[in-house]
């Protein structure tokens, strides 16, 4: 499985769905559930089958304008790699 990079295709949320209300959103998937912090949830919600990894990073950079853009990219890679290994996101 190649490392995640800007050439990665569209990000799809797989085999999981959101539950709970806005203040307590929980991601449900086989044999598990995750209560994600706000930023992680923001990344995950961008995995809508329309945006590529590059689009997601761009969007995060424009949302978190005060943060280091290099760090944003690194963090997004680390988080999405973890989700990809759980088969919760595909590219």
């Amino acid at each position: 499985m190649p490392d995640l990079n800007d050439a990665a295709g569209r990000a799809w949320l797989r085999v999981c769905r959101w539950a709970g209300n806005a203040g307590n959103r929980t991601l449900l998937f086989p044999e598990g559930a995750l209560r994600l912090p706000q930023t992680a949830r923001a990344i995950h919600e961008l995995c809508d089958g329309k945006r590529t990894f590059g689009h997601i990073v761009q969007e995060l950079r424009s949302t978190y304008i005060a943060s280091d853009p290099v760090r944003i990219r690194q963090d997004a890679i680390a988080f999405l790699e973890r989700l990809r290994n759980k088969r919760l996101v595909d590219f």
Binding site: M1, N85, K86
Partner: peptide, 8 residues
């Protein structure tokens, strides 16, 4: 199989 099939 990391990223292809999760094994528990």
């Amino acid at each position: 199989l990391a990223g292809k099939m999760r094994i528990d």
